[in-house]
Design a protein around this nucleic acid. Sequence first.
DNA 1: AGTACTAGCATCTAGACAGCATGTC
DNA 2: CTAGATGCTAGTACT
Length: 736
Amino acid sequence: MVNSQVFEVLEDMGITELRPPQKKVIESGLLDRSKNFLVSIPTASGKTLIGEMALINNLLDNEKVPNGSKGLFIVPLRALASEKYNEFRKKYSKYGLKVGLSSGDLDDKTEDLSGFDLIITTSEKLDSLMRHKVAWIDDVSVIVIDEIHLIGDKERGGTLEIILTKLKRMNVQILGLSATIGNPEELSGWLNAKLITDTWRPVDLKKGIFTDCEINYLNSDKKVVSKYYKEPTQNIVLDCINENGSCIIFCSSKKYAAGEAKKHNLLKKLTGSEIEDLNRISEEILEVLDTPTENCKELAECIKKGVAFHHAGLVSKQRSIIEEAYRNRIIKLICCTPTLSAGLNMPCRRVIIRDLYRYTESGYKEIPVMEIQQCIGRAGRPGLDPYGEGLIYLKKEQDHDLALKMLDGKPENMYSWISYEVILRKQILGLIATEYIQNESDLIEFMKNTYYYYLNKDNFRGILTQVYEILESLRSWRFISGFTATDLGERIAELYIDPLTAHDIITGITKLNMNARNLSDKEIEQHLLYILTNNSELKPFLPASDEEEYGYSEIIRKIKMTEGYPFEYVSKKPLEVFKTSQMYYNWINEMSMNELLEKYKIEAGNLNYKLENINWIAYSAKEINRFLGLKNDYLHDLLKNLDVRLKDGVKQELITLMEIKNVGRVRARKLYAADIKSIYDIRQNPEKVLKLLGGHGKNILDNLKVKYNGEGYLGTKKKVKQPTLDGFLKLKPKKD
DNA sequence: AGTACTAGCATCTAGACAGCATGTC
DNA sequence: CTAGATGCTAGTACT
């Protein structure tokens, strides 16, 4: 094999032998920097290391010293970006390689990533960085795209495709890492990439179908499981635990996942110290929110029995507690939704697919083969399990063939989603705003480089027509003129919102401004939130039933009047939008978290996610508002502070107090109610602050460097925060 | 009367990217 | 809109 710094670095890590697919890639010429690759191999077969080899090869010279060029590692999830960032930093800092992280939940105020050699980011963030025209992009010599099959995702694939279309035209080595997909040849063909496929796995995977107490493996092995319990899944889990394995059960909804978890009780199989650990973790789960919700309590109860459920309704801290406990083998069974289907490294002995269908916006649908196979691929912990098992629980015989197809069939083909209007519109504006496209021939040339064109050469006219229609809209909305973005258009491209959303916000606010004098302050606030909620970015909305309109009829009538067009009676959507906007309204008017969760029947994790999104739109609206001349002062002030209020969940009057460290919505309200309304007031009444907020008050005063000496608060003992995994993941990249 | 169970009908349904600027209870 | 678990209610059987 060639002598290379790559192998030296691998050796430093203790890797002396490559796995078969890794070998294959090297032998096919990965180290030749001019070749692109698409590597389509199973989960856990060592994909990441292939990416790392390409990075090392490009970024380190023969002496294992950074050579000044840059590498990008693109992942689909922020959590994954953090994970990889920590991993790579640990591994490669010793070579002087500076590893950086850039994603939406990280602050890098300077936005100056030029000092890093290797940058981990998400595809959307990279898109956004390119829109801000970062100069260092020209220094990039290699880019690794993890989970590149996401190009076939309706919501997010288009963005990835645009980035890749741009990157293809640069002098960059592209390495795509993909799950097994139906048409890898087409994707690699488009990328000018050498295709590497392999079925090798580090641990053997036994696939099978089970009904009641019998497992029928595809290799025609059979296993009968003892029937201790009524429910088949209980027995199949017990069987695995008895053999010292851990399980994951995938379910099609959050409620099912929680329901499934409640069925299981592993207490009899646990040691005393394990039970102790579980009780401790259970406590931890309850302490994450100030007042535990019903959901938290259920989860805590399950955990005491060695079982957890895991889905997007949990807040991220709870999720990471569970993930850690599972990796440490304290929790032995996780019942989850597709949250765990891709991404985070959570291997187990036995994966059970409980549901074959899932409700989607277009009805009840079979879960994609690729997703099932990715779930099953988690089975088998290298070094721990002799083999992994991917089992489908067959509830009714007529699904037998479907189950077989899912276990062993060909995964779906990945096609272009660039024609998805929402993304296309956003991307066209982006391309014009960055002057990437300056005239019609640029446009056509660009479009001819897309995956869409590669797949649909015969139907090029179709997408062009769509693009011209979009251009027409963008012009009529005054976001572009000719092939040049207006100032407003440029700002909207940077804000990274759908131009249609921006346009709807502009018309909505303009109308509201004109009619504001007919509305009370409260109604203006409600209406504004309705306008900000009514767009594609904030989907899905809260489900609403017709009866709910009754409670809202008066404000809905006023919104209808101001909007100048009626809510469509045929569709429930406006009511859903309205209900969702009411949740935001209640939030910024200080309804308690628990009351909100109860009223809108939403879980804490999901609420946080939604608040994050509306906050982003509110910020965008504030920015857009700078281009509008609003006459109504109240509306203008409202817009100016709405994003801050949404972030903190407070009324206008608390905003000044919220600027103080350690003061959140609850403490701010307490202070305000006691007539302490500003930093000045705090300085004047330190004793009062202490009396109101106790120990927290002390922290606040310390931070403000306010002297106080009443009632034994003389010391300035610093409270040391216990480091948590969550906190660790959120750490800022160190620029050392 | 109180309880336990159930048939029958209604209800409800996965996940998570982006801007910007910093530390909640 | 191709399913299925769950929750609610009224009805029934039983102690």
